[in-house]
Simulated scan of single mutants.
Amino acid sequence: MNILSIQSHVAYGHVGNASAAFPLQRLGHEVWAVNTVQFSNHTGYGAWRGEVFSAAAIREVVEGIQDRGVFPKCDGVLSGYMGEAAIGEAILDAVARAKRANAGALYCCDPVIGDVGRGVFVRPGVPEFMRDRALPAADVVTPNQFELEFLTGARVEDFRAAMAAARSLLDRGPRVALVTSLITPETPADVIDMLVVSEDGAWSLRTPLLPVSVNGAGDAIAALFFAHYLETRSPAEALSKAASSVYGVLKATAEAGSREILTVAAQQEFVSPSRRFEASPL
């Protein structure tokens, strides 16, 4: 498959395209990576160098790809960290171009806004753009718990509320919603939940909570879920495969005591996860 991935990039470590592209390539997919920012490292270090690219620069790169005449072969567009709201419009323009060329192409929006405990960590205007413009245009959306609450305006006080909020996303445009990093009062202390809903049903999946805190895992699971969904059109199968792979990589990362996710060293987990987790119907 061919996936146009428009998100951030770092030289050191693995977040954004640096986290999403290689797993997809390892699975045999072509990735047309367009970077919204070029930073030395992820911002969690507290200091970094680099720049946010302009919306005009994003459009120019996308137009250059279109000039090659390959958009009819684009199976999907994946977006993540945008840098600023204006870049979002350039991304939606790329989505429109891809869908005009291939009516079967899908758009997966990973609505990077913030996280529980950290709050909003993107520039002003980006959260509103995600809610009001990107969400209605998406076929697949992959928020974490904090982002789910922002996008829906609902408090996720228990699992039932999480499922109701996720289902409400489908009324806004997407056909599939994956909620990552979900912790509710029903979640045991030693595990973490994930939830996916679609027009065909809802499924949950639970993995052990690992003693690791790294950036980039969300970018990887969004990319893997999208690719597996494009291949299988099964939300449950896509969740099982993506969660199993990311768990394996995070387990290796925890065992190594690494601050950066071991995307390359543990790459076999993307192809053949060492432990399989099954999504359960709800």
Rank of each mutant, 00 (worst) to 15 (best):
T152M: 09
V95T: 05
M194T: 13
V95C: 12
P273S: 13
N215M: 12
G13T: 03
A98P: 00
S5L: 09
A90L: 07
S213G: 14
R275T: 15
A242M: 06
V112K: 01
P72T: 04
D158M: 10
A154M: 12
A177G: 15
A227C: 15
R172A: 12
K251A: 11
A164L: 14
V126L: 09
S8T: 02
V116P: 01
P136D: 08
Q145Y: 05
V34Q: 08
I58H: 01
L92P: 00
T232D: 06
R49N: 12
F270S: 09
A21V: 12
I91K: 04
A103V: 06
P111T: 10
A238S: 04
A236C: 08
M163Y: 03
S272I: 04
P111Y: 06
S8Q: 02
L135Q: 02
L182M: 08
S245Y: 03
F277D: 01
I58A: 03
T142E: 11
K241N: 13
G83M: 10
A243P: 00
H228Q: 09
C74A: 15
A57K: 05
E147H: 04
D158L: 15
M1Y: 03
I192E: 02
E60V: 05
C108A: 05
D219I: 04
G248F: 03
F129H: 00
F225L: 07
E84Q: 15
A20D: 02
I91M: 14
S8F: 01
P185A: 10
D171Y: 04
V61E: 15
R233Q: 15
E63N: 12
G64N: 03
E255C: 13
D75P: 00
P273A: 09
T36R: 07
G50Y: 08
V246P: 00
A177K: 03
I3Y: 04
W48I: 13
Q25M: 14
A21R: 14
T207I: 14
W32I: 11
F22M: 15
V77G: 02
E231W: 02
V140N: 13
R259L: 08
A166F: 01
T207A: 15
P235T: 08
R100G: 12
L205D: 02
Q25N: 10
Q7H: 09
A103K: 02
A222R: 01
K99S: 12
P124M: 05
M1H: 09
D93E: 13
V61A: 14
T232F: 09
R26E: 11
D139K: 08
E237V: 14
A202N: 05
M194D: 02
H14A: 14
S272R: 10
A98D: 04
G88S: 02
E89V: 15
A101M: 05
A243Y: 02
F121A: 05
S54C: 11
G50S: 12
E157H: 07
V70R: 00
E157S: 15
R275D: 12
A20R: 00
V15N: 00
V34M: 06
L24C: 05
S245L: 08
L210R: 00
N35M: 14
V62Y: 06
L148M: 12
A254S: 10
P72Y: 03
T180P: 00
N2M: 07
I65M: 13
A94V: 08
R59L: 07
V52T: 13
P143D: 13
A238C: 01
V52C: 11
S40P: 01
S213H: 09
